[in-house]
Design a protein around this nucleic acid. Sequence first.
DNA 1: TAGATTGTTAATCGATTAACAATC
DNA 2: TAGATTGTTAATCGATTAACAATC
Lengths: 230, 230
Amino acid sequence: MSRLTRPRLERLMRYYQFLCDQSCPLNSENPVRVVTSAQIAQAMERDQTLVRKDFAAIGITGQPRVGFSAVEVCSAIRRSLGFDGAYPAILIGAGHLGGALLAYPGFHLYGLSIVAAFDRDSSKVGTKVGGCTIKPLGMLKPFIRNQGIELAILTTPADEAQELATRLEESGIRAIWNFTPAKLDVPEKVFVRNEQISLGLAELAYRLKDAGPKRGRESARGTGSKKARK
Amino acid sequence: MSRLTRPRLERLMRYYQFLCDQSCPLNSENPVRVVTSAQIAQAMERDQTLVRKDFAAIGITGQPRVGFSAVEVCSAIRRSLGFDGAYPAILIGAGHLGGALLAYPGFHLYGLSIVAAFDRDSSKVGTKVGGCTIKPLGMLKPFIRNQGIELAILTTPADEAQELATRLEESGIRAIWNFTPAKLDVPEKVFVRNEQISLGLAELAYRLKDAGPKRGRESARGTGSKKARK
DNA sequence: TAGATTGTTAATCGATTAACAATC
DNA sequence: TAGATTGTTAATCGATTAACAATC
């Protein structure tokens, strides 16, 4: 099974969100058991062939004339994206954004649990944010080592980011979810995913400026979403 | 000048961030006046031809043997992305994430100023977050109308998002920056940019799972960043 | 001038869509 | 069976990179 590309990963994530929601008995009186690629495609505003290709890429097969089992698709996505092997993470920088992530209850769907939060500010240390007691930065390295943490979430000011990234890498962290605007310089072996929220402003400002009649709605981050054919 | 694609918009944004930083006299003893496409390409880890193409797309011309004027590039990007026509925005949902955006000082670089914040919770109304006094939702429509606001930032819980989007659209909002996981159904004429932060987990979980030796570092949201050639 | 850099055309690459055969 | 839907190969589309001519 070949490597999944980023657009494909993000689409799989969206299928997963959609199908978890649709197939959950809590959410509707008749949860969906079987879906066709056309139904998913319509909900995602993509082409149905693409949906089938994405499924094929992670080894899901459907039944001709029937469709795909919603729970099978969900579990295949969980398996191939790694949501089932629940991975503990730590968060550094318990400011507004850090607090928002700590308080977000939805991450468990994707196997993520933030098990500890750290902050430089000693007045924050010991307080609780979203169920996590803030720890001092001095405990960072021993905590990562002892708990075998592999993922760190960086929500500090930009000017602290590089120094922390280096410490994280030295402590054995394997991936960093970087919410700071800083570009992190770390060894190849550490995977960095940058969430540059302000990039969105490029598109928003541009569409606002351009008051012409040809404005169209677009959605979805990163991946363009072309309208599906009817 | 043809329509700018989303990857191009996001790259232009990054050039802008980089050049603002490099050419600002506050940030270094000798601010950069002239840059070559190769220098920018290296910093962005992209191909230099792409940089020149991006510049050409917004009408920037350089000088052979010299390069591009940093301030000219910045102002051309400001002009074509619409950062110079400062656009006031409102924010709805003054929770953790809303507070983070209200407190973020960097948006002014892109022409954005959040001029008011609204919240459903009456106990929050009247308090101050990041310099904004929280207003009640009842004032939403008159405020948008009177101030001629075109951009709204949605940071409410997902289940309130659709109702608010409809109200925003009826009040004359032209673009919505949607931070909720909800898919908004609004007329074509309203532009929606979704920031689905949890999409990032698809990639992070996948790279973490895959412990093989061929892991590579990737960065930048949405756009893949291939390593530039030396 | 020679050489560095831009500007632009052609080639490549990757992702999406169209077409259609296979299946139950 | 007939027909709906999957699975897969071929075609298209768009974005990136390579090659190279133009410029100062």
